[in-house]
Design a protein around this nucleic acid. Structure first.
Lengths: 161, 161
DNA sequence: GTAATTGCAAAGGATTTGCAACAGT
DNA sequence: ACTGTTGCAAATCCTTTGCAATTAC
């Protein structure tokens, strides 16, 4: 069992919410994994453990985990959400996403944090959070010579004029 | 009619695809607008012009516009896509998004471009595109004293330990 | 015991797809 | 003429919700 489960229990108690085996199983599955999980990933992992938990309960528990601050929600534009627990070594990080194989690499960028503060100040914004995602082709996929299917805008407007 | 319609016509001809009034109407609606449009926005604008075009056709045309490079697709995590034509003064830009009123401000950040190149080099990635979105509260909403509903993670993990 | 959760199935919203009628080249 | 588009409705995908049975406290 993940050593972080007690944090989730504490959150639930503070909120006056019941600590149920389903909630613990979902939280444990997310805490024990290191990646960026979709709800489907979580369901598969639960099934692999022999847990039989309804889809709705998984969604409802993810909402609690996000609200507790223990899990971060991501949207990489795939049409569904992904979740990542916050017990990594990198508390604030950005994502490098390979559009060929789907691999996600995390990195930290003080320059981006500085730019965020700078721009926010300039426009009078109070920043709560940001996301920086760089989409491209990772070194392995380049070596395989596979073209990226979702490279997006391939043709600059200037070339059309 | 937007002066950019000929570019879209040219793209369609190059691809051997028919130039239809529906496609032109959709493209013109997007080109004449300056914001970040949802498909619903586009449908409303078309109806306001007296055009009666099916939803499926709008979706299919947006795909062509994106592929042509004339329109950029955005996903601000609202559960649907938004589209922006590329004839603004800022070819590459980032977004500052107010989570209270939904306002979007665009800005340019050379630091972020530099960081993208730097990081990509470090990991051997070939970057195709990136997105940086800063979510926060704009100055007007701060003045109104309205709390942001979707501020996200309010409770740092460290405080839970 | 009371109030909240669970799980199923149905509903929901955005997007896609099948197909017959129609239009561009 | 031939190929591709249009528009409608149905289908699909992810997610939310209603509700009766069950469980945490």
């Amino acid at each position: 069992m993940s050593p972080f489960i007690p944090l989730f229990r504490r959150y639930l108690r503070e909120q006056g919410l019941p600590v149920t085996p389903q909630r613990e199983a979902v939280a444990d599955t997310v805490f024990e994994s290191s990646g960026h999980l979709s709800v489907e990933d979580i369901e598969l992992a639960l099934r692999a453990r022999g847990e039989r938990i309804g889809k709705a309960t998984v969604y409802r528990t993810m909402e609690l985990l996000v609200r507790s601050g223990l899990v971060e929600e991501h949207d990489f534009g795939e049409g569904f959400k992904r979740y990542e627990h916050r017990f990594t070594r990198q508390p604030v990080h950005e994502h490098l996403i390979c559009t060929t194989c789907g691999k996600v690499v995390e990195f930290q960028s003080p320059e981006v944090l500085r730019a965020q503060d700078c721009i926010s100040l300039l426009y009078g914004f109070v920043p709560h959070r940001h996301r920086l995602e760089i989409y491209g082709t990772c070194s392995e996929c380049q070596a395989l010579g596979v073209a990226s299917p979702a490279a997006g805008l391939t043709c600059p407007v200037s070339q059309l004029n």
